[in-house]
Amino acid sequence: MIGRNWFRPRPRSEEAPVTDLFSGDETRAPSFQNAVDAIPGWSCHFPVEYGLSAGKLPTFDDPRITWAMERFGDLSGRTVLELGPLEASHTYMLAKAGAHVDAVEANRLAFLKCLVAREILDFPNARFYLGDFVQWLEQTETRYDLIVASGVLYHMRDPLRLLRAMSERADAIYLWTVIVDDDRLAPSATQRFEGLDMRLYARGYGDRSVAFCGGSMDFPNWMHRNDVLAALRALGYEEITVLDDIIGTAGNTLPTFSVFARRRPAEG
């Protein structure tokens, strides 16, 4: 099990200054690499056939997204909402499978990276929007065939609000998130949700930099594994499939899981 202090909030440092992206001229011969180099702090590695130097994560061929697409079925012509596309690697996979993707990203640098990735990889059936995806979910009247939320739930101050908002926009959702799986850990708070008591665990971010991939607000609340599943069942999702995994960060091994959830569409 993970040590009892692994969720303890950490003090937030001053954000590192970001180079002015729009000053000066590029003096090298035009290339895709120039566009990548213009934005600092890439996390993901472009498909190897492009020969580009960016980040290290091989998420343009992510087995978690492949797994989710296999659970859903044929995406040709389907509408997908992606929350927090980061650098458009998962957007690329979804669009390549034939989906029409709306991708909403709050981080300005990540949004610009998504635009660069789309220009390089040329997937026109995706639109990127800069802003808060919870407000998008709560204000749009659009219903989607699938919502993809990889790496966002554990960055939310109110993760239950996000789950409810997602449930109102799609009958099929995919989540990948860090979770709490140790029943010995005392929650920071509990929240009543659909008649159930949900445990919340406050988590602070460490130092931020231009490569920061977290949420827009400090002190998000993580959820217990069992509570995520209970919340989805309470929201009417009958088909729930789980794929457990772990990630290693800063000397800790954090429990994570992928969840594909689907419910029968409402009649009429």
Rank of each mutant, 00 (worst) to 15 (best):
256 T>F: 01
252 N>R: 14
125 N>T: 07
147 I>P: 03
178 V>D: 12
88 A>Q: 14
246 I>H: 15
70 E>K: 11
253 T>G: 03
188 S>F: 05
145 D>V: 03
248 G>I: 02
138 E>K: 13
50 Y>H: 13
255 P>G: 02
77 G>T: 07
181 D>S: 04
266 A>P: 08
82 E>W: 07
21 L>C: 05
123 F>Y: 15
8 R>N: 07
165 A>M: 09
142 T>K: 14
73 G>Y: 10
144 Y>I: 02
9 P>D: 12
254 L>D: 12
92 Y>G: 00
49 E>T: 06
167 S>R: 10
140 T>I: 01
24 G>D: 10
63 P>E: 08
72 F>N: 07
232 L>E: 07
156 M>E: 15
177 T>A: 06
187 P>M: 02
206 G>I: 02
234 A>I: 08
103 A>W: 13
26 E>A: 08
59 T>K: 13
106 A>N: 12
89 S>C: 09
231 A>D: 06
125 N>S: 07
63 P>S: 04
135 Q>K: 14
110 A>M: 09
157 R>I: 02
267 E>W: 10
23 S>P: 01
95 A>P: 08
103 A>G: 07
139 Q>S: 02
24 G>F: 06
81 L>I: 05
37 D>A: 11
107 N>V: 00
179 I>S: 04
40 P>M: 05
205 Y>N: 09
190 T>Y: 10
80 V>C: 11
250 A>W: 15
217 M>L: 12
157 R>T: 08
44 C>R: 15
263 R>N: 04
127 R>V: 00
37 D>K: 15
160 L>I: 05
128 F>W: 14
156 M>V: 03
69 M>V: 07
135 Q>D: 08
137 L>N: 04
24 G>E: 08
230 A>C: 03
194 E>V: 02
212 F>G: 09
74 D>T: 06
21 L>D: 05
76 S>P: 03
236 G>D: 04
256 T>Y: 08
135 Q>A: 06
141 E>R: 14
188 S>A: 04
112 L>H: 10
53 S>A: 05
219 F>E: 13
214 G>N: 13
43 S>N: 15
173 I>P: 07
225 R>W: 11
105 E>W: 02
143 R>Y: 09
171 D>T: 06
89 S>M: 06
200 L>A: 01
37 D>G: 06
135 Q>L: 04
186 A>M: 07
226 N>F: 12
198 M>A: 04
103 A>Q: 14
45 H>T: 08
21 L>N: 11
259 V>W: 10
233 R>P: 09
216 S>E: 15
154 Y>N: 12
193 F>D: 05
186 A>I: 08
48 V>D: 14
34 N>I: 03
87 E>L: 05
35 A>K: 15
250 A>I: 08
167 S>H: 11
83 L>D: 13
195 G>L: 07
125 N>G: 00
223 M>T: 06
118 R>A: 01
86 L>G: 04
51 G>Y: 11
133 F>G: 07
198 M>G: 04
44 C>D: 15
205 Y>Q: 10
99 A>W: 12
264 R>M: 04
89 S>K: 13
193 F>N: 05
44 C>S: 14
212 F>Y: 15
102 D>W: 10
251 G>E: 12
218 D>N: 15
248 G>V: 03
